[in-house]
């Protein structure tokens, strides 16, 4: 039902520029994840779309309608907060009905909508409980339910999983994906600092850094073709290995980047070194290798059952097709620039 357009949006707190000149356009029904390190402005940007923060300059429109100065409740958006923000003195039902009461809906219309949402989220039998009597996962569902009942055009999530434990986080993530499939027309914007959430949930990821957009793209596109050294380092875990010095210079770049899985490890190869430590995760083993190329150890991915021991001499070979090169500004070095060097 609604596209979301940000045009040259800025946010200043006093003299401090938090968001500088962000322009984005989100399609209807798209699941977009804002990701970035803490303090990059991703939550502020979300709150500006919600209307909880004023937009210092620039314009916001939702569904083609200018919303820059509209009240939050008139924007057709609903938000799920990090701490759930349920009203502690109200039951689950009252929590979900509160927004509808404010919109002056009839009692039975409210009932139908609340019960519908409760059914969708399987919290029907919790409807008379107070938030205190709910587990973290249940509270999260109620928070989502409260947002659903308002039938928003745009759904905003502010790090909704960060208060849940690891197992529940995975489960809720799947549930949000399902919710998105069910509410196919609803545009969803999701803020997180967790790149696994970003990679798994997003149709498109917006990487933010220091208040500006570093790159916008599909998860794998960002992974394969990072538009800057920042994105290359931020997306992917363990992070990309970065090398500076002659090895980069011979290719006409300042920084040479290679992901752990693109670094073959064996007895012989291009870069000899020594195993510093290994992290066996079951399916994969990450081997940290000390080399003469950089003061930082390089990380290479090996199969799960490989047996590298600390101190063992090994050699690494980068896959030439998977090398990422960046100039002094952190911008990618193009093939032409590379050929010239």
């Amino acid at each position: 039902m609604a596209t979301v357009d940000l045009r040259n949006v800025c946010k200043r707190f006093g003299t401090h520029q938090v968001i500088s000149d962000v322009s984005l356009s989100l399609e209807q029904g798209e699941f977009v994840v804002f990701v970035g390190p803490s303090g990059c402005g991703k939550s502020t940007l979300l709150r500006m779309i919600a209307g909880l923060e004023d937009i210092t300059s620039g314009a916001l429109s939702i569904g083609g309608e200018d919303m820059t100065d509209r009240l939050p409740a008139d924007r057709g958006v609903a938000m799920v907060f990090q701490s759930y923000a349920l009203y502690p003195h109200m039951t689950v039902y009252e929590n979900m009905a509160f927004g509808l009461e404010q919109a002056r809906l009839k009692k039975d219309a409210i009932r139908t909508r609340v019960m519908e949402a409760a059914k969708m989220l399987q919290i029907e039998d919790l409807i008379d409980r107070k938030p205190k009597a709910l587990s973290g996962g249940q509270r999260q569902r109620v928070a989502i339910g409260r947002a659903i009942t308002r039938d928003p055009r745009v759904f905003l999530f502010d790090e909704p999983l960060s208060n849940l434990d690891a197992a529940l986080r995975g489960e809720t993530r799947v549930e949000i994906t399902r919710l998105h499939a069910r509410l196919a027309d609803t545009t969803m914007i999701y803020v997180t600092h967790d790149q696994v959430e970003a990679m798994t949930l997003a149709d498109r990821i917006v990487v933010l850094n220091k208040g500006h957009v570093e790159q916008v793209g599909a998860p794998l596109e960002l992974y394969e073709n990072p538009a800057s050294k920042f994105v290359a380092g931020f997306i992917g875990s363990p992070r990309m290995n970065f090398l500076t010095g002659p090895i980069a210079a011979t290719l006409g770049a300042e920084t040479f980047g290679i992901r752990p899985e693109d670094l073959a490890i064996g007895d012989t190869g291009d870069w000899p070194g020594r195993v510093l430590l290994t992290e066996a995760l079951g399916a994969d083993t990450f081997v940290h290798v000390e080399t003469d190329l950089s003061p930082e150890p390089l990380i290479a991915r090996a199969p799960g059952r490989s047996s590298f021991r600390a101190g063992q001499p090994v050699a690494l070979t980068p896959d030439p097709a998977r090398i990422h090169l960046f100039d002094t500004d952190g911008q990618p070095v193009t093939a032409r620039e590379r050929a010239e060097a």
Binding site: L52, L71, P72
Partner: peptide, 12 residues
């Protein structure tokens, strides 16, 4: 604050 903000989002 989030409780208040939730209420604002709810149109209160």
């Amino acid at each position: 604050t989030e409780i208040e903000e939730a209420a604002i989002m709810d149109g209160a």
